[in-house]
Nucleic acid binder design. Structure first.
Length: 965
RNA sequence: GCUCAAGUGGCGGAAUUGGUAGACGCGCUGGAUUCAAAAUCCAGUUCUUUCGAGAGUGUGGGUUCGAUUCCCACCUUGAGUACCA
């Protein structure tokens, strides 16, 4: 009987589906274990061999945990909202839901054929209204919450309202918009509802505000920072410009410190790799320093302006005590006496007010010029120093000396306060700016040469020329400076984060609609009992002619607040029937809580039941790509912390352990055509020839890099009559190069073909065998014959020509030794996610057992359980052939027994000066002295020493002997 | 620029606490089987070599009886981030 992998695999896939073998229960006597993959976006291209890598790894772990007696949850679903389906809809008119459905069918077929142990009864799709109902629900909860910095958690907005009503906002310590004016309880109670609503928006965890956003004209939508790569859109590489728009934002900045603390201190709940933690740390970008307030030296023109402003605001303060102030953030308050100018971002709101009559023309021209530059231009050109003097001066907080105020585009409006105190002796950019514009560069560092460049080494700093800071070192100087600034009321210690609030609106059709309608321009939440608010039908998926998002095309997209149902747009009366939000949510909305929904996916009354979340708690193992480090993985942590504050989840990190699988690269094949001809040269003939490299489809090339010339000729009409000059042996060789796997490089390999030709078990083994899980590595189909041959060899261990050969024979000592060293190694490897090395271990075991002619069931049955996580189909088949009528999937993992590995002797490596020269078999219970004597007496030792007397002999019993001299 | 990771045969990679470098597999070479091929099986395969042996894990140094492994400097590649004050 031969190994018919296609039949076997189909048989067991059917068995698992029919018997619901991998369906997880929400209660069990067994301990729980939750293994999760990042769910896929079902693209039209289907899977290539790179996609299942992480799924295979997580499947091995999930299956292993079942053997180890765990109640395993291993779900799968689809992140099915997204741009490609929408763009296809724009081109063809086909509803994105249909495209998505078709693509999901393909994905499901491809996933099923690989034999994953997913619990498909828990499948979620982000574009399913029954799912996105809960995405909308979380959004409402965020809207109804604010962040209390005193209790350090999110709290109900109703609580904030009652504080405002009883004591105003002076004692409220919230994560909120900057520049919120203080008000008393009387003020609050006298405000109109609209005024109150507008104020509350500045506190809510999701809020509507006019912000500078990244607008991508080509995609017709805004993008979050993590969706921009090198100044262009991640999808499609289109230019991005800064634009002010009213958009929903998520106040993730409120959680910046807790997101960092989770990385640095909550390591029990966040066993992520250091590199991934580094990426998030970097992205959050904490810097500790101080804010410093500089008073502007007022000119008579400015005073007029101030008085005008103040009268407008009905303020009783007089202008003398309220000049213009410039707040800056600095990480080096110790260098305050090194300030020789200030620089504002061109967009800074004070610029127009400060600029003097004489400088006006120059300043306005500069602002205009910088506004025109795109994000990318600005990034590409960081070398050019540009800026303009405003004509105004600020006053040094201590020396009271005048400090010229400049504007320059090296200062970013979006970071800190959009203004810096420039210390040219301690900051290279300030230094370059000062040199360029001939501004003074005072030195405040003791014994440091700053004639060529700035000096930024904190640790070696001793401050001079700095009044009360003279003679102090960095740390002390920082403390003292902050203390003195606080005394003056012109500064305080401050921490700044690079992390910005995340824009949450997208001008798209194929996304979650907001559960929001507008009354008098102010957003109102739809009551959760009316959810889901489902996507309306539209004629076209493009923006409207008036520039509104695609939902502006819908005719039934208004909200009847009285009846609590959708209404027609033409019936909008702004009394009972109001317009609905036209934006949709971004891609990461649906992926920020899906892992919890899997715990209780069919619950219609709650996002998940308390029992379910208390049972499963959090994901124990999460496997996915590191490209989500600053997107999904950060947003999901933020939502989880919010859900934790709400008391909805028991753990504030959603994924205990995270592993990033490396990318599988393609091995492209190149053929060479002589320039100007239709003649192709084999690889070794191209030296010194003028040739043009052309990608050949990798399916035309065999393991020895020989091209199937006929297949290549039939590929394209212009190759039809091509000439081929071969090697001497008649073969035509291609050259190989490792590149990213992509259609345009003709190096894409589909798992469908591999499964048909070698089987899913071979595919699974080979993907693991390629190399360490987390490492990027090239795919080369040729190598799969190795693992495929192994499976055939394994099969032969159980089946001969005349059927099953397994017996009840007592295992030999060697049999047991092979089995138990395999158990030990495989178990260690799985625990360490070192799957590549356990495949080698299996090969060694099968090679050894074959050589030993082992037929013993006591060896061959446990071997199947060891192998079952990796190659489940063949393991199930052989296990059933051994007489079992139940699936192997929960058979207990074999117990390692060290007694089978005990040796009585050791083959000692004998080294001379650390170099191994020969080995010597000696009993393990031999004493150090006897070992030394035996080695010294050996002929080869004498030969090595050639009469020399060794200086020293190192004997490590059980390990090595080293002779020095 | 800053942060992180990695450099081992023709190729993918192994060596888990400092102790026989190159496991396992691909490819290659030779052989068996076959009319032939595929498949299968056996042997060999880091480099140099005067066939005794010698060298060797990106480069240079250090610690050690002993270093792919630890330390220092440098080079290369990849990833993240980027006028972040």
């Amino acid at each position: 009987m031969n190994y018919h992998f296609n039949d076997i695999e189909a048989k067991w896939q059917k068995y698992w589906a029919e018997n619901k073998t991998f369906q997880a229960q929400n209660q069990s006597d067994k301990p729980k274990y939750y293994v999760l993959d990042m769910f896929p976006y079902p693209s039209g291209a289907g899977l290539h061999v790179g996609h299942p890598l992480g799924y295979i790894a997580s499947d091995i772990y999930a299956r292993y945990k079942r053997h180890k007696g765990f109640n395993v949850l291993h779900p799968q679903g689809y992140d099915s909202f997204g741009l490609p389906a929408e763009q296809y809809a724009i081109q063809t008119g086909q509803h994105p839901a249909l495209t998505t459905e078709t693509n999901i069918k393909t994905y499901r077929r491809q996933l099923d054929q690989i034999g994953f142990s997913f619990d498909w009864s828990r499948e979620v799709r982000t574009s399913d209204p029954n799912y996105y109902k809960w995405t909308q629900w979380v959004f409402i909860q965020l809207f109804e919450s604010w962040y209390n910095k005193d209790t350090n958690k999110a709290e109900a907005i109703t609580k904030l309202i009652s504080v405002f009503a009883s004591e105003g906002n002076t004692n409220v310590n919230a994560a909120c918009d900057d520049a919120i004016e203080t008000f008393s309880a009387e003020d609050w109670n006298s405000y109109l509802t609209e005024q109150q609503e507008a104020i509350l928006l500045k506190y809510r965890l999701t809020y509507l505000a006019e912000t500078e956003v990244n607008w991508c004209p080509a995609l017709g939508t805004v993008l979050a920072n993590d969706e921009i790569v090198n100044g262009v859109s991640e999808r499609g590489g289109h230019p991005v410009v800064r634009k002010k728009m009213t958009q929903w934002s998520m106040r993730i900045s409120a959680y910046a410190e807790r997101l960092l603390n989770g990385i640095d201190y909550n390591t029990d709940n966040l066993e992520w790799t250091e590199s991934l933690k580094d990426i998030q740390r970097n992205w959050i970008g904490k810097s500790v320093g101080a804010s410093v307030t500089f008073n502007v030296k007022m000119t008579s023109e400015m005073l007029k302006l101030v008085q005008h402003d103040e009268t407008e605001r009905h303020s009783e303060l007089n202008s003398e005590s309220n000049p213009y102030k410039i707040d800056v953030f600095t990480t080096r308050p110790d260098t305050i006496f090194g300030v020789s100018f200030m620089t504002l971002a061109p967009e800074h709101e004070l610029v127009t007010k400060l600029t003097t009559e004489t400088q006006k023309v120059e300043v306005e021209a500069y602002i205009k010029a910088t506004a025109k530059r795109s994000e990318r231009d600005r990034m590409a050109d960081v070398k050019t120093i540009s800026g303009v003097f405003t004509g105004a001066y600020a006053e040094h907080p201590f020396s009271k000396e005048p400090i010229p105020i400049w504007i320059g585009d090296y200062v970013l409006a979006g970071y800190g306060t959009g203004a810096v105190m420039s210390v040219p002796c301690g900051d290279q950019r300030d230094y370059d700016f000062a040199k360029h514009f001939n501004i003074a560069i005072p030195n405040i560092f003791d014994g440091v040469d700053i004639s060529e460049e700035a000096f930024a080494d904190k640790d070696k700093t001793v401050i001079v020329n700095s009044d009360f800071l003279n003679g102090l070192k960095y740390k002390k100087a920082v403390k003292t400076a902050i203390y003195e600034l606080e005394k003056l009321g012109q500064g305080e210690g401050k921490t700044n984060y690079r992390l910005r609030d995340a824009v949450f609106s997208r001008q798209r059709y194929w996304g979650e609609p907001f559960p929001v309608y507008y009354v008098n321009g102010l957003p109102q939440m739809i009551d959760a009992k009316h959810l889901p608010i489902t996507l309306p039908e539209v004629e076209k998926y493009l923006p409207t002619e008036t520039g509104e998002p695609p939902l502006g095309n819908a005719t039934v997209w208004a909200w009847d607040a009285l009846k609590g149902e959708l209404a027609k747009n033409k019936d909008i009366d702004n009394v009972n029937i109001h317009p609905l939000e036209l934006n949709t949510m971004p891609g990461w909305a649906g992926s920020s809580q899906y892992f919890n929904r899997y715990m209780d996916p069919h619950n219609e009354n709650e996002i998940f039941s308390k029992e379910a979340i208390d049972y499963w708690k959090q994901v124990d193992l999460y496997i996915g790509g590191s490209e989500h480090a600053t997107g999904h993985l950060l947003y999901a942590r933020f939502w989880q912390k919010f859900m934790f504050d709400m008391g909805l989840v028991p753990v504030d990190e959603f994924a205990k352990k995270l592993i990033n699988q490396g990318m599988i690269l393609g091995t492209s094949a190149f053929v060479y055509r002589m320039e100007g001809t239709n003649t192709f040269l084999s690889k070794s003939l191209i030296k010194n020839k003028d040739v043009q490299p052309i990608h050949a489809d990798v399916s035309f090339v065999n393991a020895s890099d020989e091209l199937d010339i006929e297949a290549f000729k039939n590929w394209r009409t212009d190759f039809k009559n091509a000439e081929f000059i071969t090697e001497e042996d008649g073969s035509f060789k291609v050259s190989r190069e490792v590149e990213k796997m992509s259609k345009s490089k003709y190096n894409v390999v589909s798992p469908d073909n591999i499964c048909a030709q070698y089987g899913a078990d071979s595919l699974r083994l080979y993907e693991m065998f390629l190399g360490p899980l987390e490492q990027a590595k090239p795919w080369n189909t040729a190598g799969i014959t190795g693992v495929h041959g192994f499976l055939k060899k394994l099969w032969k261990l159980y089946f001969g020509e005349n059927g099953l050969t397994v017996t009840d024979a007592e295992p030999s000592k060697d049999n047991l030794k092979t089995l138990h060293k395999t158990i030990k190694k495989v178990e260690e490897d799985i625990e360490n996610f070192s799957f590549n090395t356990s495949v080698s271990t299996f090969m060694i075991a099968v090679n050894e057992l074959t050589a030993q002619k082992c037929t013993s069931k006591n060896i061959l049955e446990p071997l199947l359980i060891l192998l079952s996580p990796y190659a489940p189909h063949i393991a199930e088949e052989l296990y059933s052939q051994l007489g079992h009528d139940k699936s192997i999937s929960t058979a207990p993992f074999p117990e390692f027994d060290a007694s089978h590995l005990v040796e009585s002797s050791k083959n000692y490596p004998i080294s001379f000066n650390g170099k191994m020269r020969f080995t010597l078999e000696l009993p393990l219970d031999m004493s150090k002295e006897d070992i030394e004597a035996a080695v010294m007496a050996h002929d080869k030792t004498k030969e090595q020493l050639q009469g020399r007397q060794p200086k020293k002999v190192i004997v490590v019993p059980g390990k090595i002997v080293n002779i020095v001299g």
